[in-house]
């Protein structure tokens, strides 16, 4: 069985103001099918760059990425990849229903088939009462749920999520995490999730990958074997505390080492 994502010796260098900035250096990662993997690290560690390479938004300077065994560009064309951005990125001239319909429309799915699919997805994110609302009339959490519904509506094999809940308050974020766990449990998708929140990463993931900056690279990996469905009580278990502590050490240790190295 081919893995969902295989990144080999991935390197990305940006030109910036005459200098060069190495966003990613020899990054290796394999994400298995139906696995939930979190990338966590300080800003500038290249987490987003990894996602952008997988979604063919940038081309790596070195190494390679394969998605379901094919290059990212082909996977995008086959609509195998869903992407949730840091901001909801809803089109302000479309109401909730039409925003969720967008991927179907662009794929040429006939309206008669697209409409029930979009409606079912909106129901799944609990926004049936808001189908006619414009994005401006929704709270931040609701907007992000619409964005997630939009990324799910094509039934992609892999969903890339770039700090989707970073802009939300703590309470809403916990809500969204619980909700995302349910969605993940009901579908057979693979999720690669970028965050800088350790608690969120452990709660959601099968595997947490800790990255460091300058150059962006992996410093440590943790397997989270807490059983699913996950509940808030699990944050009080030994496993949770152990991973949290080790992840913090890796995270801040990496940050300090980077500083010393400069």
């Amino acid at each position: 069985m081919t893995a969902a994502v295989v990144a080999r010796e991935l390197s990305v260098t940006f030109e910036s103001g005459g200098g060069q900035f190495q966003a990613l250096n020899a990054f290796n990662l394999t994400v298995e099918k139906n696995e939930f993997v979190s990338l966590i690290g300080p800003s500038g560690c290249g987490k987003t760059t990894v996602l952008r390479c997988i979604a063919d938004l940038i081309s790596p300077t070195g190494g390679s990425v394969m998605v379901n065994g094919i290059p990212p560009r082909d996977a995008i064309k086959k609509r195998d990849i869903g992407y949730v951005f840091q901001s909801a990125t809803l089109l302000e001239w479309r109401n909730v229903l039409k925003n969720v319909m967008l991927p179907l429309e662009l794929a040429g799915v006939p309206r008669a088939e697209a409409l029930p699919r979009a409606e079912a997805m909106i129901e799944r994110v609990g926004l049936t009462d808001f189908v006619k609302n414009y994005p401006r009339q929704l709270s931040g959490g609701m907007q992000q749920r619409v964005a997630i519904a939009r990324s799910l509506v094509m039934n992609p094999d892999i969903i890339l999520m770039d700090e989707p809940f970073a802009a939300l308050d703590e309470i809403t974020r916990d809500d969204m995490n619980r909700w995302l766990l349910e969605v993940f449990a009901q579908s057979s998708t693979t999720i690669l999730f970028v965050t800088h929140n350790i608690r969120e990463a452990i709660m959601l993931s099968d595997r947490v990958v800790v990255m460091a900056a300058r150059p962006g690279r992996i410093v440590k990996e943790f397997k989270v074997s807490m059983p699913r469905p996950r509940t808030a009580e699990q944050t009080f278990t030994d496993e949770f505390s152990r991973i949290r502590q080790e992840a913090e050490e890796a995270l801040y240790g990496a940050a300090t080492r980077t500083k010393v190295g400069e």
Binding site: A55, D56, I76, L106
Partner: peptide, 19 residues
């Protein structure tokens, strides 16, 4: 970001213009 979205959704040039 909207341009990125359309790219990820594999929108054609004309779809990008119209939608």
């Amino acid at each position: 970001r909207e341009v990125d979205l359309f790219s990820v959704l594999s929108a054609s040039r004309i779809q990008g213009l119209l939608k």
